[in-house]
Each structure stands twice: as structure tokens, then as C-alpha cells.
């Protein structure tokens, strides 16, 4: 019963998001009415073109290529960034040593990485994957460091008095705190991963959504370009709202107000 209610509440909260989405589509339509087909094709045309891509199978193959690169790169950077970040957070010296490196990494624009990756890996799938990894590691790293640096020593003292083992202190006292910092960082990193993957594909590969966009640009096919943009955004929204957001809700019920006000954390992120 509780689960059904949770799902209902979750989907109800989607209505608010839909209002914004439709407003956006309406603006797009208005832009089309003003500037015409060549500058901005109608949303319906873009969607129809997207339907064609789904039909001939190119949408699925392009999306899966991009998804593997984005999600794979994100997974690697999430793992490395979080682990190294937690370790750095535990030692002040390590944090001091790594921080300038992270600042430098954050400062290098993704496009520069793409150039480097192109030279190193050539026009293969490794180029977008590598670019995703190096651009999102600093984000997950920073989240992990921040979470670890702000651990509550008072709670740790409490746990020690009640004779918790080091493992239990980590699992029950430290980990939930660190996760509450890591989750937003992961979501940010994942959003970035899609964009960077598509960008790298556009310049470097012959498959994936980015490569299709490059082709559409060469053919001056605006409807196809818009269709691929819609596909990218759709994928991103799907991963975020069907995987990350429910996961976050599950692990962070302790932070939320009782049902009905569950959107506060989302708002903060936006």
C-alpha cells in the first residue's frame, strides 16, 4: 500500500515538471511561427523525424552508442572520483595536495580534452569516453571531499561511547553523510557526461548521437538536428528521473518533509 502511494506521489510531482516542459514546447512553436522552417523547424516536424529514426533503428543504435560512452565514462569517474575524494577528505595533507590539481582539471574546458583525446585515441569510441571521464572526475571528487571534510565528529564520539566498531561507524555514521554530498555531485556529473559525450562524438566519431548531428549539420537538415537534440535530452531526463531521482528519494527519506513536499531537494538543485 505504502509503495503504491509513493509511486502515485512521485508521478503526481511529475505534473509540475510537465507544465514547464509544455511551456517550453509552446515557446519553440512560437519561434517556428516567427522564423520559419529553415531556422527553427516545428516541434511536430522534429518529433516526426525522430519517429522516423526510431523506425529505421538508427535512433536506438545511436542512442546506445552514446549511452555506453556517457554512462560508462560516468561510472568510471564516479567510482574513481568518489573513492579518491573520500581518501583525500580523510587526510588534510592529501586534500591540500589534490585540490590544486582538481582546480586545474576543472579549469580545462572539455573541448581541450577532446582535442587531446583525438590525438591520443583517434576517431574511436575511447575519445568521448575518455573526455567524459576526465571532465566529470573533478565533480565527483569535489563532492566526496566536501562530504568527508564535513563529517560530524560529535556523532562519531557518540558512536564510540556506544561501542560501535570502526566498520559500523563508517556504515552508519559516515557513509550516509558522505552520500548526501555525493548524490548531487553524481547527478551533476551524469548530466555533464551526456553533453560532453555528444560533443566529443560530434568531433571525433562516426557513430553515436553526436556523429548523427554532425551529419545533419552537413546536410543542413534542421529537423534532424532538432530530433537528435530531443533524443539527447530525452535520454538524460529518462536516466535522471527513472533511475537517479527515485534512488535519491529512497536513500534520502530522512531529509525530506512528509509526503507532498518532496520537491524541495529538486528545487535546490535547479
Amino acid at each position: 500500500m505504502g509503495v503504491v502511494k509513493d509511486i502515485a506521489v512521485y508521478f503526481w510531482s511529475v505534473w509540475g515538471a510537465l507544465v514547464g516542459l509544455f511551456l517550453f514546447v509552446a515557446l519553440w512553436e512560437a519561434g517556428h511561427a516567427v522564423y520559419g522552417d529553415f531556422i527553427l523547424p516545428a516541434p511536430a516536424d522534429a518529433l516526426a523525424r525522430f519517429g522516423d529514426f526510431v523506425h529505421d533503428g538508427s535512433a536506438v543504435s545511436a542512442a546506445s552508442d552514446t549511452a555506453i560512452r556517457a554512462i560508462g565514462g560516468f561510472a568510471v569517474s564516479g567510482l574513481i572520483g568518489s573513492l579518491v575524494g573520500v581518501m583525500a577528505g580523510l587526510s588534510i595533507t592529501a586534500a591540500r595536495a589534490v585540490r590544486p590539481v582538481v582546480t586545474v582539471l576543472l579549469g580545462i574546458p572539455p573541448i581541450a580534452w577532446i582535442v587531446l583525446a583525438l590525438l591520443w585515441f583517434g576517431p574511436t569510441g575511447m575519445t568521448p569516453m575518455f573526455t567524459v571521464i576526465v571532465t566529470s572526475i573533478p565533480i565527483t571528487f569535489a563532492g566526496a571531499v566536501e562530504g568527508t571534510r564535513t563529517l560530524d565528529r560529535d556523532l562519531e564520539d557518540m558512536a564510540r561511547i556506544f561501542r560501535a566498531t570502526r566498520l559500523r561507524i563508517f556504515v552508519d555514521v559516515h557513509l550516509p553523510h558522505i552520500l548526501s554530498y555525493l548524490f548531487p555531485a553524481w547527478i551533476t556529473a551524469l548530466g555533464m557526461a551526456w553533453k560532453v559525450a555528444v560533443m566529443a562524438e560530434l568531433l571525433a566519431t562516426s557513430d553515436g548521437i553526436g556523429a548523427r548531428m554532425a551529419t545533419a549539420r552537413v546536410n543542413l537538415d534542421m529537423a534532424a538536428t532538432m530530433a537528435w537534440i530531443v533524443a539527447t535530452v530525452g535520454l538524460l531526463l529518462m536516466v535522471e528521473y527513472l533511475v537517479l531521482e527515485p534512488l535519491k528519494r529512497r536513500t534520502e527519506t530522512w531529509r525530506q518533509r512528509p509526503a507532498g513536499h518532496g520537491n524541495s531537494s529538486q528545487m535546490r538543485r535547479m
Binding site: 560529535d154 556523532l155 564520539d157 557518540m158 555514521v173 550516509p176 534520502e252 531529509r255
Partner: peptide, 10 residues
Amino acid sequence: FQEPRLLPWK
């Protein structure tokens, strides 16, 4: 303790 020091996630 002076503050409850409860684990907020439990």
C-alpha cells in the same frame, strides 16, 4: 549529551 546527537538518517 547537551544536543541529542541522533543520526538524522535513522
